[in-house]
Structures are given as structure tokens and as C-alpha cells.
């Protein structure tokens, strides 16, 4: 809440008078690019194995999360909507080449001008989460039934699936499934803001490069990590598990790529 208040104050205190920071009536394209990492290494599904905490190793099959209400913040303070919802899904990133390209989302007709930040909600925003896959056409990020819990009337905001080798013997038979979605008493959606100087020019494409570190999500420190020897599955019913995942995805894992 404090963060949101701070953001609001920033917004209202922005210089809204006519200046070189104003957006102009010309349009360009913005590409939002997410690259996945596990610590310093590229995040590659299935093909790569990663050292984990306490002598464990880990391999992933799926890492995905929703982002909602994606806005650019102009230097003038004006918000420009990039997109309503996207599914950032690394499932098919199965080589380092694919990892280096990352996942891109393109937005056209973005007013030309100078921008200073991007903000987005991590998860599915409240308004969107009140709907269901049947409300959307085929191909829409929210139309996929596999990402919706009908019994809980919530989308699954984040999925992490893979395998763990619990003792470093090369046997990855421990199955990992962490599915995080919103329950009535568990609000999990939060907006983040990342500073980035972005210039959008008429008929040009500008890239906004972001990184997502899955290690930060499940193992932010050597004393604070998901211990697969104790927990290998959660469907948002163990607070210590889903809180760690959600908090770290929202606060620590997503950064502007340098």
C-alpha cells in the first residue's frame, strides 16, 4: 500500500505542463522482451540443470506467470497502456539460443516521446480475474482453460514445474509443481514499477528489456528457499510456500536488463 501511495504521489507531482517531455501525436512500436535466468545462467527448460541449495539440483519444465495492466509512464507522468494482460511462458524455451532471444510482446500505436518507467501487475488483476476463459476468444491469454481454477473462480497466476535431484546423485525423480492462484482470502496481485529511460519514435520499434530470475523466486537466499526435501507441491494452500513465490516474483525477480 505504501508503495502504491508513493507511486500515486509520484504520478500527481509529475510536471504536466507542456514541455519536451510531452508525448506527441505520432506513433511507434514498443517491444517488451523478457529473458529468463536462473541466477547468472540462462533459464532453459528441460535441457539445463541447475545447482540448488543444500546439495540439491533442479531442472525445470515450466515457468509461467501473468502480467496485467501493463503501462508505460511518460516523463510527463502520463500513463500509456501497452497491454491488458500477457502470459509470460517459458515452457518452450528449451535451448540457450531460445533463451537469449527471450519472450517478446509487441505493442503498436504507442505515442512517440520520452518514457521513464514501466508498471505492471504481477498476476491477473481483480477485474480480469472475475472473468473466465469462456469470456475470451480462442488465443487470448485468458482463454486457456489449463490456467483457470473453475472451483475457485481464479486464474492460476504463476506455475512452476520441474524435477529435483534431492541429493546430487543425478536422479531427478522428485516432481515439483507449484501453482499459485488467488483464493478468496489470499489476495496475491500486486503492481510493480521499474525505472527505464525509453524513447519511442515515429514508426520505430523500441525494446524494453526485462529479466526474470527464477532463482530469486524460489531461492532468494541460502537461508530462505523452497526446500524440495520438505515440499514439492503447492496449489496455494501452504502460505509459507506461495508467499515466498509471490513475494519474490513481485519484488525481486523482475528487473530491467542491463
Amino acid at each position: 500500500m505504501i508503495a502504491l501511495l508513493g507511486l500515486s504521489l509520484t504520478f500527481f507531482s509529475a510536471d504536466c505542463g507542456g514541455s519536451e517531455d510531452d508525448l506527441v501525436d505520432e506513433f511507434g512500436e514498443v517491444e517488451l522482451n523478457f529473458q529468463g535466468f536462473f541466477g547468472a545462467d540462462p533459464l532453459v527448460m528441460l535441457a539445463n540443470e541447475y545447482d540448488y541449495e543444500a546439495g540439491m539440483d533442479v531442472r525445470f519444465q515450466l515457468f509461467q506467470f501473468y502480467v496485467s495492466e501493463i503501462n508505460l509512464i511518460a516523463k510527463s507522468g502520463e500513463k500509456v497502456r501497452l497491454g491488458e494482460i500477457e502470459l509470460v511462458n517459458f515452457e518452450n524455451i528449451q535451448s540457450e539460443d531460445a533463451a537469449s532471444k527471450g519472450l517478446s510482446f509487441s505493442y503498436s500505436n504507442i505515442p512517440a516521446g520520452e518514457y521513464r518507467a514501466i508498471e505492471m501487475g504481477i498476476g491477473v488483476s481483480g477485474d480480469l480475474n472475475e472473468k473466465a476463459p469462456a469470456d475470451y476468444p480462442v488465443g487470448h491469454p485468458l482463454a486457456f482453460q489449463g490456467n483457470y481454477w473453475s472451483g475457485l473462480s481464479s486464474y492460476i497466476f504463476t506455475k512452476i514445474e520441474g524435477n529435483a535431484d534431492l541429493n546430487g546423485d543425478g536422479d531427478f525423480t522428485e516432481k515439483l509443481t507449484f501453482h499459485i492462484g488467488e483464493k478468496e482470502d489470499v489476495p496475491l496481485y500486486q503492481t510493480i514499477s521499474l525505472d527505464y529511460e525509453l524513447s519511442v519514435s515515429k514508426d520505430q520499434s523500441s525494446v524494453l528489456p526485462l529479466s526474470v530470475d527464477l532463482k530469486q523466486v524460489i531461492s532468494p537466499s541460502s537461508t530462505n528457499f523452497l526446500d524440495f526435501r520438505e515440499v514439492s507441491q503447492d496449489h496455494t494452500n501452504q502460505a509459507s510456500v506461495y508467499t515466498l513465490i509471490v513475494d519474490n516474483l513481485q519484488k525481486n525477480a523482475i528487473r530491467v536488463r542491463q
Partner: peptide, 21 residues
């Protein structure tokens, strides 16, 4: 959907009106 019963894990793949992803 039960905190008491075992989970069948069926709905990861067989879900929604079509009962398939």
C-alpha cells in the same frame, strides 16, 4: 478441491468445459 481428501491431479490436464486443455 478438498483439503481433506487426496488430490487426483486430474484437472491439470482435464479441465474446463471441454475437460481437456
Amino acid at each position: 478441491e478438498s483439503e481433506i481428501l487426496p488430490t487426483g491431479e486430474c484437472a491439470h490436464c482435464h479441465v474446463g468445459p471441454l475437460l481437456t486443455t
